[in-house]
Simulated assay, not measured.
Amino acid sequence: MLNTDTIKITPELLALLSEIDEFKGAWRALGTLAPERLQALRHVATIESIGSSTRIEGSKLTDREIEQLLSRLDIKRFDSRDVQEVVSYAEVMETVFQAWEDIPITENHIKQLHRDLLRHSSKDERHRGAYKTVPNDVGAFDESGKMVGVVFETASPFDTPQRMAELVQWLNDMRSLKRLHPLLIVAIFVVVFLEIHPFQDGNGRLSRILTTLLLLQAGYAYVPYSSLESVIENSKEGYYLALRQTQTTIRSDEPDWQPWLLFFMRALQQQKRRLSMKVEREERALADLPELAVLILDYARQHGRVANRDMVREYGASPNTLKATFRSLVDKRLLVRHGGGRSTWYSLSIGS
């Protein structure tokens, strides 16, 4: 079983936990944001999360390409692996956002999430939703993609079922006993999950999905509105270093949890600070916008895109006034222009 008696609550770790919890309470009391504003924040964060989490694993798609891909509701075929991963990740994220209260943390539910995460990947058809059957140690690769050495040994296929059963049992016991701070429980679950590496592929992406699920279940309701995956992508070297430093000690008598706990809490701190800045920036921007500009942004959030004719039809706005308003919103980087002439349309700017 996991030995968590070696966790050291240092002054920095305590300060991080306090700051994150303070924001958790402040977010709960935030009644000023309208539903459409929250929807816009979640839309941007979701695109960033999908992009970052899949790029960490090697995808090449940009956030803009992902947004355009997911706006094509009629898409039926997913020809490239990058597209398969993006679409699956988006679907599983939506499942978590909509049903997090109804997803107990059991091995079967973890396997179901894994199956859904690889749903569109033809390469992974045989092992989706099932624990690994061959070793999947984490290796170092040269520029040609050839493995040149083992960086970290994961659990063997034989040990994986028992290790996962123990981890899930530990999580649910800790939640019931409430002897550890909820954020420490989430952090330890994630690092041990990645140390086990229970599935043949998709472990990194699934760990980040599970992180979001566990944080929501722990009451951190702001998580869907700011991308933790984006923070991790921007700190990839620190992410892998902290994982390795802790993972190599997990099965010892005195595990060193500190490297991972500090990285994880600093990432959560950065996530909440980004969200705080976005909310402040949006409130300032909206306070300075005329009513027509706010209506345009609201329409774009609700429909994914907006054109001059939409606003004429909906509100009877003057074409000349609309032209100037659209230009102003593009200049302020709140909208992005697409097409030209009578076919011009606009979408929300990523990050606005």
Rank of each mutant, 00 (worst) to 15 (best):
R128I: 02
I185D: 02
D116W: 13
F199G: 07
P224G: 11
S347R: 12
G351Q: 05
D21A: 04
F189K: 02
G304R: 09
L286T: 02
I20C: 14
P182C: 14
Q245L: 15
D102W: 06
I66T: 04
Q247E: 13
F264A: 09
L295H: 04
S144M: 02
V134Q: 15
E19Q: 15
L113H: 03
P224V: 06
E65S: 11
T95K: 14
T133A: 12
L16M: 12
L183G: 06
E125H: 07
T133R: 15
G238P: 04
S352T: 06
L2N: 09
L13G: 00
R163L: 09
E94V: 07
R115P: 01
V96T: 05
S80N: 10
G202W: 02
P11W: 08
L292R: 09
K146R: 15
A287W: 07
V148E: 07
E314T: 08
E12G: 00
E283Q: 14
Q39R: 14
L261R: 05
F141A: 09
S122Y: 09
S252Q: 13
E143Q: 14
H127R: 12
I56N: 08
L180Y: 04
H338R: 14
S121K: 09
G149Y: 08
G340W: 03
K236C: 01
L297S: 00
A285P: 06
V150K: 12
L214K: 04
L17V: 11
D173L: 13
